[in-house]
Simulated assay, not measured.
Amino acid sequence: MKRWKTAWRFLPFSLLLLLLAGCGEENLTALDPKGPQAKWLLDNMLLSIYVMAFVTIVVFAIFFIILAKFRRKPGDDEIPKQVHGNTALEITWTVIPILLLVILAVPTITGTFMMADTEPDPEVGEDTVVIKVTGHQYWWQFDYENEGFTAGQEVYIPVGEKVLFELHSVDVLHSFWVPALGGKMDTVPGITNEMWLEASYADVYKGKCAELCGPSHALMDFKLIALERDDYDAWVEGMQAEPAEPEDELVAAGQEVFESQSCIGCHAVGGEGMATGPTLTNFGDREVFAGYLDIEDEGALAQWIKDPKSLKQGTLMPGYEGQINDEDMEALIAYLKSLTVLDNE
């Protein structure tokens, strides 16, 4: 009895946890589809649930009817008549499951072929956007090879168009996933996987690495920004343009710090520098850095530059503790936040 009382005591907390398990960040859910792939996935899940619910209700209804109608009653001393079987019933309970499997199989097979079709959209043709995605510990690199530039941590696509992704990894197994737009796919070292996504609405969609890839796996987030075609083209032009010389004295001083501290050896800006780390061409347009930290939090940004491993375990970025004084740090942060490509973002 004590055990039952204890179990009932924790029931409200269990129900609360169950409800909270369904809560999540905006756009980080597969239950609010914003693209054709995600809509098909949700529809197929619902179809499976309806079929399972139908089977469950029928089985339990028959069970309780038999339990009530054929239960042993007082005076029933004789064993019921034993029969070999009922051909009609056996055919019925064989045919019904086959029909249910067909109902599940047809949309599953057609949807699988639909999602595996990585051929360019005929309506878009040569203008189809192709993005090479590379997973790193613990950030994402997006190479727009036809356009000739690289983006990091945020990937931009045009609305209403089929966008092709070529998935790679340089270290361990990662998994590229934008829940509101489609399913996940692994990035495997030495292997190129292909997938496509389409956004039906202009919005910011959150993405995650869905494969355990190290101690900071949970912080390997990114964003997919879907823009109308004109806005997307303007963003591409901004990424392709040469960075303007800073007019503000503080920003100019920050650029000098950036270059003198060899930051450009890992982070490219406007095509200048290496891409060992995330490209910073549009750093000021981002809402977060390091995958999860608010870009407006200058204290966190300074701490990231000084000692990144204190904020993201396992990151390969070196720290600059003791190498940059407070005045230079203020200038460096001003420079980083000045790196934008669109005024309206």
Rank of each mutant, 00 (worst) to 15 (best):
I157S: 14
H84P: 00
Q137H: 09
C213Q: 00
M239V: 12
L293P: 03
L342F: 02
G254E: 05
L311S: 13
S260D: 11
W177Q: 07
V129P: 00
V129L: 02
G270C: 05
A244I: 02
L173C: 01
I109P: 01
Q240I: 14
A275F: 05
A300S: 06
G22D: 08
M239R: 14
L332Q: 08
M45S: 15
T150F: 11
A334S: 14
A21L: 15
L104S: 14
W4M: 11
D307C: 00
M220C: 13
A268I: 08
M1E: 11
E78Q: 15
P189R: 08
A244W: 02
L164K: 08
G85A: 05
T112R: 12
I96S: 14
A199H: 09
E249C: 01
G270W: 07
A21V: 12
Y138V: 03
E26K: 06
P158R: 07
S216P: 09
E90A: 09
Q255E: 14
I91V: 15
G214M: 07
E237G: 11
K208E: 05
P107S: 04
N344C: 01
H136R: 14
Q313M: 11
D121F: 15
C23K: 06
R72T: 15
Q82M: 05
A61W: 09
L47N: 00
A68V: 12
H267I: 06
H84I: 07
L167A: 03
H217Q: 04
W235D: 05
I131E: 08
K5E: 03
T276N: 08
N44L: 10
Y156T: 05
F113V: 10
G273K: 01
P189N: 11
H168I: 01
A53Q: 12
E198K: 14
N27A: 10
E145F: 08
I65Y: 10
L197E: 00
L99E: 10
E345Y: 11
Y156P: 00
H174R: 15
H84L: 08
P243I: 10
D171I: 09
D127K: 04
Y205Q: 06
M115T: 01
K306N: 14
A61V: 02
A334K: 11
W40G: 01
E242I: 09
S260C: 04
A38Q: 01
L293H: 06
V83Y: 07
A252P: 02
A252C: 10
A68R: 05
K39M: 02
I333T: 08
S216K: 06
G277V: 00
E345V: 15
L173G: 08
Y50G: 02
